[in-house]
Nucleic acid binder design. Sequence first.
DNA 1: TTCCAGGCGTATC
DNA 2: GATACGCATGGA
Length: 270
Amino acid sequence: MDYKTDGKDLLLYQEDLDLDQTFDCGQAFRWQKIDENTYSGHFLNTPLTISCENREKHIFRLKDTSERGFIDKWCNYLDLSTDYSELKKRFGEDETLAKACRYAGGIRILRQDGWEALSSFIISQNNNIPRIKGIIGRLVEHYGGYPDISQMTSETEESLAYLRSGFRAKYLVDAISKITAGEVDLKRIADMQLDDARKLLRNIKGVGPKVAECALLFGFYRTEAFPVDVWMKRALEKWYPNGLPDCVKGYEGIAQQYLFHYIRTAKEEK
DNA sequence: TTCCAGGCGTATC
DNA sequence: GATACGCATGGA
C-alpha cells in the first residue's frame, strides 16, 4: 500500500481501483457520483469524497482525510490489504473470468457495515438498483445518516411507510426485532462457520439464500459467500453449467462480483 | 399495457 | 424437495 498526506488530503496510489466499477456496481447503494472523477459517500457516518486524480498513474485523492482516519477506516473499507492483482492473476486461469477481469479490473469489494449491508440487501429483493437507492436515500435522509439498529427499535411496518419499500418493510421490522432481541447476534457472525452464519441470518423473515450471501460478502467480508441473483443465474447457465472453476476457491464472492458486472454491463461477447 | 427488477414466504404436491 | 404464485413499487 502506497500513500502520502499533503497535510489536508490523503493521496493514494492503487492500481486495482476504478471508482465507477467499485462504487456503482450494485454492492453499495449510497455513493454518489459528484463529477467525472469523484464519488462521495460514507462508511457508517464518516463521510468521504474520493477523486481519481490521475488515471495513468493510478493516483486518488481522499479529501480531508488524515493518515489516522485512513488507517482506521478507509484502508479497511476499501479492502486495501487485499492484493487484487494477485486474485485476478489466479482467476485468469479461467477463460471467462479472465475476460471479466479485463473488462472490469478496477472492482474491489467494499467492507461495509454489517447492518447496513443486511438491511440494504433485504430492501434489494425483487427490486431494481435505482429504486433500491431511492429507498435507502429516504431512510438516510429521515435519520440524518444510516441508522444504527439501536435507533430503529420502535419502527413498525406503518412507521416505515415513507420509505415506499413495499412488502419489504415488514422484513426490516422482523430483522430489527430479532437482532435487538439477541436472537440474531450480528457480532458473532465474524467468528462463525459460514454455514452457521447463513442459517442464523436466514432466521430473519425476508432473508433467503441470496440476501444472506450478499450480507455475508459485503457486510461481513466472507469472500467465499457466493450470491446468485437473476444475473448470476444467467452467467452460471451460460458459462459454468458444471460449476465454478477451482481457481476461485475461497474467493467465490469476489469472482462473482467481476462476473456480475461483466454480464450486466458488457455490450459485446455476452 | 405489460414486463421486469441483486427474492422470498407460503401453499401444494 | 421441488414447483407455482403473490407480493409493493416504479421504471422501461
